[in-house]
Nucleic acid binder design. Sequence first.
DNA 1: TCTGAAATCGTAATCAC
DNA 2: GTGATTACGATTTCAGA
Lengths: 162, 162
Amino acid sequence: MYLNLDAIDAKILFYLQKNAKMPIKEMSEYIHLSESAIHARIRNLEERGCIKNYVAVLNKSMVNKKLTSFTGLQLRTHTQYNLITSMELISKFPEVINCYMVNGDFDFLLHVAVADMQEYHSFFSNALLKVKNIETVKTFFVLDESKADNRIDLSRRSRMRH
Amino acid sequence: MYLNLDAIDAKILFYLQKNAKMPIKEMSEYIHLSESAIHARIRNLEERGCIKNYVAVLNKSMVNKKLTSFTGLQLRTHTQYNLITSMELISKFPEVINCYMVNGDFDFLLHVAVADMQEYHSFFSNALLKVKNIETVKTFFVLDESKADNRIDLSRRSRMRH
DNA sequence: TCTGAAATCGTAATCAC
DNA sequence: GTGATTACGATTTCAGA
């Protein structure tokens, strides 16, 4: 089951998703709650596994990964063995930053980050196409990211507003 | 231009992408470099914008977002105005955790997180289908995530190995 | 369950070399 | 780059609301 988070927990998680190193003092001013209460709640959220971990997010263009894509893969034969072994192999490619098994037109959807088109070509030819049982590959190059921070909205906004 | 990172920087970024709160002392043991040297390098990487920020990553199933999808959208008419305004609107939907403009069969690829299929249905009907100029919507539900940590591999492994 | 204060601890920042 | 020192913020504890 999931945790029942109140409005204060949601606010804490909002700030932590934006800045994991926000001083508790600062957060306590935003939320209008004492530092000790904030601290206790954060520890609670960590202990109950609501917060998975804290990570550094890199600036892709500064680490020479200017080209990203979503790449859909379809396998030829769909045995359990094929799916698992392909997924394991694909996940190990250094260019693949995320690998999802999906339903629909593709079996896998990969999030790929490379330096440039030449590197993508190399990845495509030397890695992807050498995976056994690949039927089709379809690439969606990312042209623009209007939102790409992976933040989960926990405010209880109703769908009715739209 | 991008930064030229040496092997030590790559290692530091590897650990920070895994655990933003790793004590410098621990990292200094792994990398075999003094704490002050590590510290100086981290500050440098931060100041040069290589590290964008530090964030908390939530456990989706613990915050009642058990169902995720990638949803491809195609617009009917492709004026600059349509693209921009649609993107801005779509990015504001609380269910959309990432929104990418892409080439290929779709104009936008959305990363969506909701509680369950009922909530997805509501999002689909009450939000997505009410965006002006939507031609088609194609949903890929995520069945499994074999790699979903968004970590960028900065080790200089050659494609030739595959 | 919260507040506010006080003490402790560990880490990060700074310094001289 | 190293190693030692200083300063800061996080963490724990507690009495009390």
